[in-house]
Design a protein around this nucleic acid. Structure first.
Lengths: 229, 229, 229, 229
DNA sequence: TATGAATGAGGGTTCATTCAT
DNA sequence: TATGAATGAACCCTCATTCAT
């Protein structure tokens, strides 16, 4: 019966195995996030997962394999399409603000994982490919499709989609870092970022944009308020 | 007389010392860049610098201090002000393209250093502060001053300067990572990035921008060419 | 059943663990004693204990912890109370001679340990406290109680108990050192020391003591025999 | 002229050399005393002596040689004979109290040197011999001669001189350690030690000694006051 | 399969000593 | 002779990984 609930055909044993694997990954993610990959020790992870050191090696080949596992699982959980499909109905600007706001809010977790994973990813070929495939590639593809669609709809003008999308993603990644560095103005105005970004990305810095946007160009002004710090 | 050529009053010994320190930093940078901070060993660095292990500790307190040294030296070399002052005369868009192009060109070196430094920076409190102060803070301040000036000149519209500047820097940093991940489209169109960025940042994605820019809006089209990959 | 012989409930694993810890301490004691704390290396100790270097750190926090372990074990073995209670029935002088003789006989082992431990103890705050608590304090207390009792019984006259006891202990410690220095006269007359000490401590150097002691004052003469060197 | 003041025939150069050697030994003594032999580094000593590291090696063969130098110099300074010859006129008990008091007062310095030197002495054969010869042997000889004389004068009874003297010296050394361990009762009653020792050594613990000493046996009572702690 | 003690290679760092200047 | 930078052997300790139970 219990098995029926499981979509996987897995026996009790298999399910237990997956649960154990999960709890190890949970522990690893937690420890990696808080101390970084190199500073984290297998023992800590084992402790956090409430298993013995050796047990971990029954599920993962080595320490780096834990990272791959974490990434794979994160990617699995990601449900960007949902957000997109839902927001696709609105205008792009709204979508951007929405999507960014949503993403930026989740950034705190992401930031930790980034901190945990990135150093190693930058250095480890295998992880790098994995990371690119799981994250960069997927998001890039989604966004590209979206932008293409919007261009076709006349909602976005005919820019270089591939590059533009990458620029946007780059900005997102860069913001993660800026946050990590504890940049004050950024932190205190964190919730203004999505709109500021929207202004930048949609309206551009070009002053003549104002003429278009009209008097209602609230964002540009609103941001001025955050100009302090 | 030969000494006169030296701006430093340093004796031969002092000069040698500085040279040695430099060669150690060179070696460290090289090794860090190629293997990452943790994978790099003092012995390797010493070998690369052609000194004994212990010698390194006559110049740097510990391994992490090498990173700080690398950062400090990079920052010293940075002469952003010059670029800025020279480009300040032109219009902002030209400046951006120019500056970005210049920066992006230098990115390959920077990328290595970033790869070497950043992972550790993300994890090490002390380094993080150092990094922020040396890079983020300096560049942020310069750009803020520039954007403020341009706004006053009416060349850029009244956006939230602090945030906007940070978004631009974030984009820059993010691009470094995208490159590190070996994203193909980005790599093959690397020289198109500056203009693509300019379009994004100045004209915005807003399709109405086209009306302003006129039919000659070359960049937007140019990027399309790079849409392949 | 075999386990029943063990007072500890310890499983085989626990017993093995204790044995291993013991053999490490044995090895450490041996190496420390022969080369001194600083000259001893973990590798030597590991070698002597027939374990891997790392194994030592599964049992002891660091090198200094080995010293503490040695001290703790020594203290555990010490059963001064037994000696005392048994000898308490006799007269104090007999007890002293007895106790000292017993102690001095064991000194050879003790001497090694002392040589191993003391130098470091003198320099290391933590060890010093530990040592004082385990040895000095315990013995001091025992002797004080004994002397107090004897004074009450009129067997010892009313001296400053605290100081006197410390003087006696000091003499004992000092003898350890004299031996360590290889003082010849002391070494060749080692077995005469207890009585010589008894004369000194009980009869005093005061010549009038002779009148009391009578012609049979053997000890004083006996020691003369050892006057050689 | 200045040379005339020097008893040594040494030229200016020789004098300077000796001064330098002296200041190095001063520095070494200071550093050794405060940190122990092993914890002290040549650099610290050089710094304290205001010379370069290498200079030390122009005067001393190696680090251990500094210890030998210190010991040799200390021994040179020791002027026990004076004390003895001066106190020889008085009765032995007075001499003992006097001598001990004098010695115990100087113990603080001695204690530091002991702490500095002893660990190494206990382990280093060469130093051990040196130490014994310079200190133990000399003092032993002096005291032996004195006790012999006093026995001949009938001031001290006919004990085993060699052993008794060694017991006294041992007590002295032992007190150094007890102090080092920070034994409270000992520290707070430090100035009562000489008399307590005199009671022990001259009158003995034998209660019948009281009869001889008479009611005026102040010391025994005085010590009782210090029995607290 | 879980355990966790044992392993031992490897790394950062120290510091006595040397030697070119 | 003084200097002090260079040296590099040696050491303590960590920790990923293995494997007997």
């Amino acid at each position: 019966m219990a098995q029926q609930a499981e979509s996987q055909p897995g026996s009790r044993r298999e399910r237990l195995k997956r649960e154990r694997e999960d709890s190890i990954l949970d522990a690893a993610a937690e420890v990696f996030a808080s101390k970084g990959f190199h500073q984290a020790t297998i023992r800590e992870i084992a402790l956090a997962a409430d298993v013995a050191d050796g047990t971990i090696y029954n599920y993962f080949a080595d320490k780096a394999d834990l990272l791959i596992g974490i990434m794979a699982r994160l990617a699995e959980v990601e449900r960007l399409p949902d957000e997109l499909s839902h927001a696709l109905k609105g205008d792009p600007r709204g979508f951007f603000v929405e999507a960014f706001r949503h993403r930026l809010a989740r950034m705190t977790e992401g930031q930790q994982m980034l901190r945990a994973i990135l150093p190693e990813v930058l250095v480890n070929e295998e992880l790098r490919a994995e990371f690119h495939q799981h994250y960069i590639a997927r998001i890039t593809e989604l966004l590209e499709r979206y932008v293409h669609a919007q261009i076709r709809l006349g909602q976005i003008r005919a820019v270089d989609v591939a590059l533009t999308v990458r620029l946007v993603i780059a900005t997102f990644i860069g913001l993660l870092f800026m946050r990590s560095f504890g940049d004050e103005p950024l932190l205190s105005n964190w919730d203004l970022v999505p709109e500021s970004l929207a202004v930048l990305v949609f309206d551009g810095l070009n002053p003549e944009g104002d003429k278009l946007a009209g008097a209602g160009q609230r964002p540009a002004c609103a941001f001025m308020a955050g100009d302090g710090a």
